[in-house]
C-alpha cells in the first residue's frame, strides 16, 4: 500500500544541514496497522509527512496505492492527498467551524450536493460516536472528542490510508485507550491502512501489527510487534521495552541508600525475561521443586502483545550455588533470559 524507496530528507538552514531521514526503504501492507516509534528528534514525524508529501523527500520515491507521489505535479498531488487522511497531536480542528462544519470541510466545493454532504457527515458522526455534538465548536469539546472529530474529518473522503501523528500524545491514558480502540475498529470495519507515529510503546503494543523503530533518521529495527519487542536487538528498542516495564525499578532499589533489599549469603537476586511464547509454563514452581530452591518474587511485569505474554520478573532465589546455577541453565534452555544481578 505504502512503499518508500531510499527516502532521505535534509533540511538546510543557512550553512547548517540536518539530515532528518536517512535512506529509509520500507513497505506497509494494505489493511495493516503499522507503528513508527522513536524518541523525539528520531525523524518519525518527518518520515510520516513524506507519505502525503507534506514534506517532500530530498531523495527517493514514495509510492502510495500504486501511484508514485513524488512524480506528480502539485495539482495531481492534491487529488491524491484526498486518499490519505491525517490526524494530529494538537487535533488541528478549525476553531471557527462547528463539529459539523469541520467534518463537512473536505467535502465542500468538491461538487457534492448539500444533502449528500449532510448524509455523509451524519454517517461519520455515527462512526465516531458524536451524534449529539454536531453544533458544538471545538473549544467546547474535550481532547478525546476533538480527536474523534478530527478522525471523522480525515475519513470524510473515504481515504485508503490514515496517518496518525502522535494522535494520542495529548490525551490522558483512558482517552488514549478509547481513541486507539476506535482506530483499531476503523481498521477492521473499513479495511483502512493505518500508520501510527508515536513515542509511546503502549500505543504500538495496543494496536500495531508491525513496528518500525527509528533512531537518528534511520529505521534501525522492524518487524512483527511481538518479535521486535520480545527480543530487541538494538539498545533503543530495549529502552522502549523498558519504558513500559517496571523491572528496571530494581536498579533504583539497589541504589537506594536505605538498602530496602537485604541479601543473605545464599541469596541470589535474578532477573528473568521471557523471550518467546513460553510464559504459560509453570517455570517458577518447576525450578522451586526440581532444584529445591526458595523463590521470592519482588517485581513482575507481564504484558500481552498480540495476545502473547511478554515481560519478566525480578526475584530472590535462595539456595546453594550449584543448584541455583542449575536452575538458571534450565531457564535458559526454556528460552528465558536469566541473569544474576547481585548476590549476598
Amino acid at each position: 500500500m505504502i512503499r518508500f524507496e531510499h527516502i532521505s530528507k535534509r533540511f538546510t538552514d543557512g550553512a547548517r544541514t540536518v539530515e532528518a531521514v536517512k535512506d529509509v526503504s520500507l513497505e506497509i501492507e494494505k489493511g495493516s496497522i503499522a507503528g513508527i516509534i522513536g524518541f523525539s528528534g528520531a525523524g518519525k514525524s518527518t518520515l510520516a509527512r513524506c507519505i502525503n508529501l507534506l514534506e517532500r523527500p530530498t531523495e527517493g520515491k514514495v509510492i502510495v496505492g500504486g501511484t508514485e507521489l513524488t512524480a506528480l505535479s502539485e495539482k495531481q498531488l492534491r487529488e491524491q492527498r484526498k486518499k490519505i487522511g491525517m490526524i494530529f497531536q494538537q487535533f488541528n480542528l478549525f476553531a471557527s467551524r462547528t463539529v459539523y462544519g469541520n467534518i463537512a470541510y473536505p467535502l465542500e466545493h468538491g461538487g457534492m450536493a448539500k444533502a449528500e454532504i449532510r448524509q455523509r457527515v451524519n454517517e461519520l458522526l455515527d462512526l465516531v460516536g458524536l451524534k449529539d455534538k454536531e453544533n458544538a465548536y471545538p473549544a467546547q469539546l474535550s481532547g478525546g472528542q476533538k480527536q474523534r472529530v478530527a478522525i471523522a474529518r480525515a475519513l470524510a473522503n473515504r481515504p485508503e490510508v490514515l496517518l496518525s501523528d502522535e494522535s494520542t500524545s495529548a490525551l490522558d491514558p483512558q482517552t488514549t485507550k478509547s481513541i486507539l480502540h476506535l482506530l483499531k475498529e476503523l481498521n477492521q470495519k473499513l479495511g483502512i491502512t493505518i500508520v501510527v507515529i508515536t513515542h509511546e510503546m503502549q500505543v504500538v503494543k495496543e494496536i500495531c501489527d508491525k513496528v518500525y523503530v527509528m533512531d537518528g533518521g534511520r529505521v534501525v529495527e522492524s518487524g512483527d510487534v511481538f518479535q521486535v519487542f520480545s527480543s530487541p536487538r538494538e539498545t533503543i528498542t530495549r529502552n522502549f521495552v523498558m519504558s513500559t516495564s517496571n523491572l528496571s525499578q530494581i536498579d533504583e532499589l539497589l541504589g537506594d541508600p536505605a538498602k530496602p533489599i537485604h541479601l543473605g549469603p545464599d541469596d541470589y537476586l535474578v532477573r528473568l525475561r521471557y523471550l518467546e511464547r513460553s510464559t504459560s509454563e509453570a517455570l517458577i514452581s518447576h525450578i522451586s521443586r526440581q532444584y529445591e530452591l526458595d523463590v521470592n518474587i519482588l517485581l513482575a511485569s507481564i504484558e500481552l502483545i498480540e495476545g502473547n505474554p511478554l515481560g519478566g520478573l525480578v526475584a530472590v532465589i535462595t539456595g546453594p550455588h550449584e543448584r541455583v546455577r542449575g536452575a538458571m541453565e534450565y531457564l535458559s534452555r526454556r528460552n528465558v533470559l536469566a541473569e544474576v544481578i547481585s548476590h549476598g
Partner: peptide
Amino acid sequence: PAGMIEAAQSMGASPWE
C-alpha cells in the same frame, strides 16, 4: 495555528482555498 494549515493541506486544499 500552523497546524490548521497543515491539516487543510493534508486534505488536498490548494493555496487559494
